[in-house]
Nucleic acid binder design. Sequence first.
DNA 1: TCTACATATTCAAAGAAGCTTATATGTGAA
DNA 2: TTCACATATAAGCTTCTTTGAATATGTAGA
Lengths: 118, 118
Amino acid sequence: MFDNQKESNLPVINSEMSEAEINRMMENACEASNFLKAISHEGRLMILCHLATGEKSVTELEQLLSARQAAVSQQLARLRSEGLVEPRRDGKTIYYSLTDRRAVQILDVVYELFCKKG
Amino acid sequence: MFDNQKESNLPVINSEMSEAEINRMMENACEASNFLKAISHEGRLMILCHLATGEKSVTELEQLLSARQAAVSQQLARLRSEGLVEPRRDGKTIYYSLTDRRAVQILDVVYELFCKKG
DNA sequence: TCTACATATTCAAAGAAGCTTATATGTGAA
DNA sequence: TTCACATATAAGCTTCTTTGAATATGTAGA
């Protein structure tokens, strides 16, 4: 096993915590959990990766993911509801871009850990 | 909107990528997606947080999470099957600890983003 | 060996999430 | 206004996930 304390800046959780602190922590965990669920879907993860290189229209994303219109639109709806992306209309087409620096930061780490291995 | 390019080290994904490169990327996305799914469960996320402060027995985790024995054990089984934690037996009790630096790194970022806000 | 304790596993039920098909909305051009 | 295109939403279905209850495994001590 490796030594966590050396690598992590995570706070110590102990029994001296007040109930308020524990509640706040549970809320944070819930929020983080929702965020992670939103990005842990393979299609949505790929969408975020593609958007990280610049805004894309829905049709472009459909092609990049080889997925159907409705499916992509629903995945975008989910990301929108989490505040991770935002739409910009230009005529008939709608372009999506990232709005949340948190998404980019997590993606960076995920990219480090899963794409640069080996 | 903010400028992704300034903040991110993510690679550019363009149409000049070979099929092999795209396949590799899809595999990575799939692997990352599985990893993120494993940690995006509120209970499992809390378990990982608790383990980040040092190994804990199953009973301790049950109390910390106010959850039932079977539920905690199943969550641990999932984390075990993903290779994120490992058990150590000492007499009748079994202690769990983190085994995957990736979990700690993601947790660090998540903690930064969701617990230090405001 | 028998018993008690700690943990794991199995299985069925409940719930959540995702996809497809069909339909609706909004925009530009004729 | 009518049509065509781009996107969004809704409904129904299927599949995955999670949970609780019951049961099994493994260990220590009497």
